[in-house]
Design a protein around this nucleic acid. Sequence first.
DNA 1: CGCGTTTGACCCGCGC
DNA 2: GCGCGGGTCAAACGCG
Length: 407
Amino acid sequence: MIKEAINSCVHPPFDGVMAESDKEVELDATKAKVEKVREENEKLKLLLSTILTDYNSLQMHVSNVIRQQREASMKLDINRHDNLGLDISLRLGRSDPNISQKENEIEKISLDKISDENKKVSDKKRSALGLGFPIQSSDEDPKTDQTMKLDYVSRDVKNKNAENKCVSSRKDAKTARNEDHQEVLEGYEQPAGLKKTRVCVKAPCEDPSINDGCQWRKYGQKTAKANPLPRAYYRCSMSSNCPVRKQVPKPRISTGFGSGSGLVVQRCGDDETSAYMTTYEGNHDHPLPMEATHMAAGTSAAAALLQSGSSSSSASLSYYFPCHHFSVSTTNSHPTVTLDLTRPNYDPNQLPNYALSSSSLSFSSSDRPSSSNSRTLSFNGLRSQAPLSTYSQMARLSHQTKLSGQH
DNA sequence: CGCGTTTGACCCGCGC
DNA sequence: GCGCGGGTCAAACGCG
């Protein structure tokens, strides 16, 4: 209906010489149509806000349930460890074989219930939001989705404000940009004294720059003294003001001699050190394509994990990056989550049937008393119901496309 | 011509 | 205060 109205507005019927009265009638009809469409839009907006409200309350409920469960299981853990005199450790259900099967079952059932509820909500959203723009919904974390939407809206407002600002000098422009960036980051309530949250992805040599579904524009390159490989700096170009940055170590390349004319990516080592570390920083302020939502949601989950250090956040992180090793560290005030794609945590031929909270996580800060500003958190993510496109799959795909489409 | 990359210069935070 | 180094800018250049 909307389409018809728009069509009639854009392409009014033209029958040669039209009488004035006919034109007026036509105009009135079009106006009426536009009014109808407007009313329809208002209704849809109302519906959308109702859904969002429902969704938020449901989200709150879910997080409360999860928190209660975590608290209960942590109490058990603390009691156990108090007896043994061990350091604090956060457990997500799987690693400790002593946990009663009953406890696991209860958790599994409630989590299944939660995912069912989430599914219902997202189905509701899908049916309600098909308003002509593409809905890029995957199995992403609803919370992240919500955060991204809110971020998008607030960014829109900021952009409008920024238009009014008169940036007189280069320094001013830079400051304004930094402030703008900071504003976005503040939305994530970074802990005081900590810098931007970073998510590092350690990829095998074959995938020096991973195609994560986003469009990146290179804005600089720098040779670090400590590292022989120059580092390339990319900025997300899907939105003019997107604060997301990406750092990719540039592989040593050499033009191939003999067979083939394409570029050859050289390995810079034989062992683990040959892996490339891609660093992501910031959060997107725009809708993402399907293949990018997963990574974005994952990095948001990582950021959430860094902020809260909570086991539920790590569970969601293991959801986005299943079957890989993660480590969380805070060095030089830069909270960083490292995803190691070079160390798969599973046997691909034997995918186990795990419940949602199948990660093990350990927190050690007491073993290095001198490094007050440095803590490390590492855990393994394993999950049977992996999202449609895991990051490693994307990495592999990217490599294939890069090889075929190299110029 | 538009868009992306390259590259030298510049800025700024941090450690000494 | 100074120097170093990471991060960013922007003009020049290349490519389709």
